Simulated scan of single mutants.
Amino acid sequence: MSLVKRGTVYGTRMNFRGELDALGAQVNEAPYKAAPQAPVLYVKPANTWTENGGTIALPAHVAEVEVGATVAMVMRSAREIEGFVLMNDVSIPHDSFYRPPVKYNALDGFLGIGDRVRARNEAGDPAVFKLEVRVNGELKQTVRFSQLVRPADKLLADVGEFMTLQPGDMLMLGTDAGRPRVRAGDRVEIKMPALGTLTNLFVAEAA
């Protein structure tokens, strides 16, 4: 394992079949009129980053947030993966999937990041990754990466068609439907044996 060397962090929308299925007919409505033909990406800027074990503050006007348990590829070069790291992609619940405003997913602290990168040859095949998400010790979601629309290598190749990733950049594989919602006072644990456990405590924003 190695420490996380952070470049730009990119999230991926609609890369789980369950997430696409949950949208139903909405994917065929204007202005898009079809499921995405290329990866749909967004940025989690540095102000969102929270360490493993750190607290994530909910703004006063936000009663609950969604927990987006996922794994990110950490890049060694534009096309070479150094390894994988756990992430908790937090967002305010919203209905906009194609172009979600940054006010929903780029708030301060809204990305929990694991503290270690597991090398690809140690982590195993990402197609069989499985995460368990626990809230206050209770299992709330199991995320199976066999359900990806674009598996890790395909996602990386497709992203490389229109942009160049830099060493240290991190590309999330996506978050599945059924994301748990949490409130201030809840403790979230995202666990996978090969990648360890990412823990964050949600708190109310200080007055």
Rank of each mutant, 00 (worst) to 15 (best):
T142Q: 13
I92S: 05
L111S: 12
V149D: 03
T55V: 12
R79M: 05
A34W: 04
Y98K: 14
T12G: 04
V40R: 12
E161W: 07
A22D: 11
E122C: 09
L148K: 06
V90L: 11
P45A: 13
S96T: 14
P151D: 10
Q147D: 15
V143G: 01
G18S: 15
G112E: 03
G174C: 08
G124A: 00
R134P: 09
E132I: 09
N136W: 02
G174Q: 06
T164P: 11
E80N: 05
A184C: 03
V133D: 04
V128N: 14
P39Q: 09
E66Y: 10
V67C: 10
D186V: 06
P167E: 08
T8Y: 12
L131H: 03
L198F: 03
M1A: 07
G83T: 01
A194K: 10
R17A: 14
G83I: 01
D125E: 06
E66S: 14
M172R: 06
G83R: 00
E51Y: 07
P167C: 09
E205K: 01
V117T: 00
A152I: 01
T55H: 12
D186H: 08
V182E: 10
P59Q: 00
I113R: 03
Q166D: 14
E51H: 11
A72G: 12
N52D: 13
A69E: 01
L41W: 13
A206K: 11
G24A: 04
P167W: 09
I190Q: 01
N121V: 06
P151A: 02
V143E: 00
L171H: 04
D95P: 02
A30M: 03
G137S: 03
V85R: 00
K140M: 07
P101H: 07
A157M: 00
F129Y: 15
E19R: 13
Q141P: 10
K191V: 11
K154A: 11
Y42Q: 13
M87E: 13
W49F: 15
V85K: 00
P36L: 04
K44W: 13
M73E: 01
A22E: 11
G83V: 01
Q147W: 07
Q37K: 15
V149R: 11
Q141N: 10
L198Q: 01
A34D: 10
M172H: 09
L173Q: 02
Y104Q: 08
V74T: 10
A60D: 09
V62D: 04
L41H: 13
L139N: 02
L20T: 05
F110E: 09
R144M: 11
I92P: 10
M87A: 15
T197Y: 06
R144S: 13
V4D: 01
R144Q: 12
R17E: 14
